[in-house]
Design a protein around this nucleic acid. Structure first.
Lengths: 212, 212
DNA sequence: TGTTGACACGAACATGTGTTCTCTCATATG
DNA sequence: CATATGAGAGAACACATGTTCGTGTCAACA
């Protein structure tokens, strides 16, 4: 397949810039005037070429019906995760069900390349206090969790220790009728506790720390 | 200010859904037929209401010139940061200048609410090894840095210790002609070293940990 | 009862915008 | 040389789409 002509390249560039600036695609005439092309038909002609090699998609008859193949996907690839509360050592974890109509003011947005799935069932909590340094999590960090009540061995989960009335974030290993909770920090020792004592609140899928 | 009418709410919802599905905004008539509204002027009327309270932006005369305030910003507000290499204890830090034409295959995308500025001058490195657990950073984490050769006291910076031939990530305090490098982990002790021995590579602005 | 204002209708109207048709013009290609 | 082909110009056409205007409904209110 032949290379793109200079004109096709500049058209492609212009579309990208336009989309960055405007949130809606350009018209053929936008492209025409910006690039100093004499006729709309020329734009149409080159657009067809770009479409033929899959760089753009066009919805005929529809105004501004140009979609960038590269962009159309990458845009949607951002997941917005609500920060529904705090997580602290001596405090039960808020669960997503609680946020009935509560206005979640804060959200965290991540490219979906960081989150394995579409962001369904994910929620986030802001860490309060230094109780989770053993999981390499600092005061002020945001932890992203997937809501679930069970987990596989080796997964890091947020658990509520009933007896201690305490929340913690550790690797989970079921060993007989006891659970071993292993800190992420390799220099620290695990906790052993009866299985009935732990209540899994969610699985840790991410940590975001923003400084300043 | 009054609440949104049911019609305005449904219009807003429809615009959101349309944008999710299509990558270009809907026309007034798209909204009209989808919601079974009798006239375009009714849509226009309600759109004006939505615009008045800042929920959308409209570019008059321009077809499909509707932009969602919530969306329009959040889309652009994503910064894409290139992951240009690794950072490890015994290894100098790659600097952005090195990436001449090198194909950066990996990027990290964050909502700009996490990054104070536009993402200019930011780059990211994947952490190799456990040498930075004292900064609460784990093997495999991605650290986001701003390129700079100087810093204020108290900022966390990536420094190259010439004598030790070692990279580390610590809070920086200039004290006379010596530098105190303070681990983020409050339980650990600082390092003191002559000022000439430290070479600031960048300031830490974020950490992202993605688990599976 | 009359007035007012929010909301809605329907029908033009005026542009915006994609599409298409006919011509050039240069460059191969035989 | 004759012909094909790729790239572009210019204009017209047809439909897509934003805008506006006159009117109607209905509840709230003095």
């Amino acid at each position: 397949m032949k290379d793109l002509s200079r004109r096709q390249q500049s058209i492609l560039h212009f579309i990208e810039h336009f989309l960055d600036a405007n949130d809606y695609p350009p018209t053929i005439r936008d492209i025409q005037t910006e690039l100093g092309i004499s006729s709309t038909s020329v734009v149409d002609y080159n657009l067809k070429g770009l479409e033929a090699r899959g760089l753009i998609r066009r919805n005929s008859k529809i105004s501004r019906g140009i979609e960038l193949a590269s962009r159309g996907s990458s845009r949607r690839n951002m997941v917005t995760i609500p920060v529904i509360g705090q997580i602290a050592a001596g405090q039960p974890i808020p669960v997503p069900g609680d946020l009935e109509g509560s206005d979640v003011t804060e959200t965290v947005e991540l490219g979906s390349d960081l989150m394995s799935n579409s962001g369904q069932g994910l929620f986030a909590l802001r860490v309060k206090g230094h109780s989770m340094v053993d999981a390499l999590i600092n005061d002020g960090d945001v932890v992203v969790l997937r809501q679930q009540e069970t987990c596989e061995n080796g997964e890091t989960v947020a658990v509520w220790l009933k007896e201690q009335r305490e929340t913690t974030l550790k690797r989970f290993y079921l060993e007989g009728d006891h659970v071993r909770l292993q800190p992420a920090n390799v220099t620290m020792d695990p906790i052993y506790t009866p299985a009935e004592n732990v209540e899994i609140q969610g699985r840790l899928v991410g940590v975001v720390r923003s400084i300043d």
